[in-house]
Design a protein around this nucleic acid. Structure first.
Lengths: 148, 148
DNA sequence: ATGAGGGTTATAGTGACTATAAGGTCAAGT
DNA sequence: ACTTGACCTTATAGTCACTATAACCCTCAT
């Protein structure tokens, strides 16, 4: 921990300006990645302090948190850019965002199915290869079997 | 469909030489990707016919199928290269392959957990945004909430 | 004043493709 | 015979979302 009042980041006492490193710690996004997002237009160019360092406030943390969550949910940066754009226009109907969420949900569920199949296959493979030698090991065979 | 006898690929009648396109169709791996694998050393340089075209037999299809399955299971090409190398030396103990499988299984299960969380959040988000306007929509809010 | 640990830029590299360009080959139809 | 179109060949460049590196500046404690 660097500064005395930076620890909580819920401490909205005096001023809440953060350096890029503090924002990185608070948001769980690396500093380089934050700069990358700025360059990609996902974050506005940050306000600079006298020495040229970037300074961030709670709004930026919020926005960055949103981005990080979306990334974790599997959204591409382009999708996120669009969603941020939509969200900035408060009068627009929510359908488009909702549509995206639905599409993403479909994707997530497809991946879940894939992973379930993967898991099953891996479990089968581990049990078939206990303490043996590759000559008897069926792993490669099992994974190269042509479906016929 | 191009050639007359290419359709079945289970037809092991006369000769079973395939062009790269046929192998691509049979293996569900794009031709460009097959060439890429060759360049990366995952596949041996293919035998060439008189005109310089690549020709493949069933052994290659098997190997490629193995690679594709591994990719689907989330293995990196480096891992696959090693596993192929291990599998080619039939006297070696299976432990190393097994170890990899175990590691991969752990990865798969971690992703499953992540996806489950994602799904939950997405479901929550879709229900909170039905027919509204962004001003009332909680999606962006929900995904930018600082955990406190 | 020195060194550690921040910050700044720009550029190059990563993995696993994907797209493009520019050409050679082949079977079928007119 | 010729053209069309689908296939094959190579090489190179682009993609995405970072990640690493280089080379430098700023600040603070010892």
């Amino acid at each position: 921990m660097t500064a005395t009042e930076s620890e909580g980041l819920a401490s909205k006492g005096a001023n809440e300006w953060m350096s890029i490193g503090q924002l990185a710690a608070a948001s769980d996004v690396q500093a380089v990645t934050i700069r990358y997002y700025e360059k990609q237009g996902l974050l506005d160019p940050a306000h600079r302090s006298a020495n040229g360092y970037r300074e961030y406030g709670r709004a930026q943390l919020k926005r960055l948190t949103f981005i990080r969550r979306c990334r974790r949910l599997g959204f591409a940066l382009d999708d996120i850019r669009v969603m941020l754009g939509l969200a900035d226009q408060h009068a627009l109907p929510c359908d488009q965002v909702d549509e995206r969420i639905e599409a993403q949900l479909a994707q997530v569920r497809e991946r879940q199915r894939d992973l379930a199949a993967m898991e099953q296959e891996l479990v089968r493979l581990t049990s078939c290869c206990a303490g043996g030698v590759i000559a008897q090991c069926r792993i490669v065979e099992a994974l190269s079997q042509t479906t016929e």
